[in-house]
Amino acid sequence: MEAEEVNHTPKGTEEIAPDKQPKPKRRAVKKIDIFKAWCKACGICVAFCPREVLAIDEEGYPFVKNLDACTGCGWCEIRCPDFAITVETRSKRKATKRGDGKEAG
């Protein structure tokens, strides 16, 4: 539908030549792997991801819906009871930092 067409050009970059466009922001996370052979479709990783990166497919298994939103916090892999999801970050992430109870309410 033409009426709903949106302009995908980021604001303020319209006049810049294609080769001078600013690079897209580097993602913190390279990839998220879901190892289906071990995954039991419990939904924990999806329910507690703070950025809604993951979603549930029609069979009940998680899949990566929006990798760009992932911060690499690591909570999905830490709370997965089945060691079935791994997050590969570009740099050393904070997920392995000492538990100090700060995440508690």
Partner: peptide, 15 residues
């Protein structure tokens, strides 16, 4: 995969 039920907390404790 281990024997515990889908979503069981015991696997998280093993981690």
């Amino acid at each position: 995969p281990h024997v515990w039920c889908p979503g069981c907390g015991t696997g998280i404790i093993l981690g």
